[in-house]
Design a protein around this nucleic acid. Structure first.
Lengths: 119, 119, 119, 119
DNA sequence: GTGGTCTAGACCACG
DNA sequence: GTGGTCTAGACCACC
């Protein structure tokens, strides 16, 4: 967690959750760590951690069983992928192509950079 | 300008300025529109516009002549390009490659998308 | 704070902060008073106080934790000393020597004055 | 002239005049360049140049003969020296000693620096 | 005309 | 509670 970042901490926590689901570290139906555990682990106010859980719940990624805990929802993996894909296609790609044009970076350059980093 | 964006208006104005310089619409040494002109044009309070000018001045992109106005600083074009390139290489590219990996998008897919949008 | 000075209030606040750090009243990593506290203390508008905080943040002297407050950055003491030393050597000393020459004040005179004030 | 400085241009012109008098480039009673000549020379608006003349006149450094020009006043040299000395003793010296203390610079250090620059 | 500082106060996001 | 953005408007210095 980067406390000096302009990305809200609860968003950073959300991202971490999405990561875990995407990388299938947390399978569908599985119970996720409790709000308190997360709060202690990342050293934030429990309210802040709770906010991440609640946002993910309203997005249908997590579901809550009162008195038990939060669980990865059925279909969460597909859902997460769909959202991420949508954001990628509609926002990140156009921004990327704009940047490339302004910086005189061709697709060939990009491919070269990719190969270099993926070695 | 997008007033409902979470990006502050003054940052959006800064971006607009950087664009103008990058596209060489505003040459080095040239006088840029006055604070009040910008404020009227984008329909914001002069204070908000001023903030963009001042940030760009501390970044060395603009310089000020008392009672006259703001000017594009010498070396601004190179500076802007350098900053943008740095951000691209150090922040955007890694994020892009991470996204691609998580979404199972190959470089070939990306090249295909690029060709499609650039037609 | 001198409200009738031609030095802007927010600059005077900045100087006060630099003093506190230089004199090690405020240690690195320590939380500084909140914007509102400073505003009340020096009897200015919170916006004016905020401006000092933000300038010091862009200078890397302070850092911010969202919703918590401002903190003295790591390395701030060294940084402040370096800046002050640089200004002294490159700007104040040459000006001093120029003044002395124009006023026919010798180094011996200066030493004498120094002894007198430091008694 | 430094147009990007925070020192007003008319003040910079005044300083230049005081220099000339102090260095006895311009003797008492002598005619100084006209407002227009100065304005052309330093590339400023004649109004700005005029302001410097007028301030110096109210300070008794210059005097004006209508239709003829500005002249260095009798006693100007003594006057300039007195003012400069006063500012030096009451403002610059205390600031210098404060800086030295904060930067752990002793009088011996200062003497050494002085010798170094005056070689 | 130019920019610069400051106030008062509203509204918002974050923890 | 924290800071951040923005507006409206005043007043000032400089060119």
């Amino acid at each position: 967690m980067d406390f000096s970042s302009n990305i809200p901490i609860y968003k950073q926590i959300e991202d971490y959750f999405l990561q875990q689901i995407l990388l299938e570290e947390w399978a569908e139906g599985e119970r996720v760590p409790s709000v308190r555990e997360i709060a202690v682990q990342v050293e934030v106010n429990p309210n802040t951690a709770l906010r991440a859980f609640q946002e993910l719940q309203t997005q249908g990624i997590l579901k809550n069983e009162r008195g038990v805990g939060y669980f990865v929802n059925e279909g969460a993996l597909k859902e997460v992928k769909a959202i991420k894909r949508k954001v990628f296609m509609e926002q990140k790609l156009p921004a990327l192509f704009r940047d490339m044009e302004q910086l005189d970076i061709t697709m060939d350059d990009l491919v070269a950079m990719f190969k270099k980093t993926s070695i």
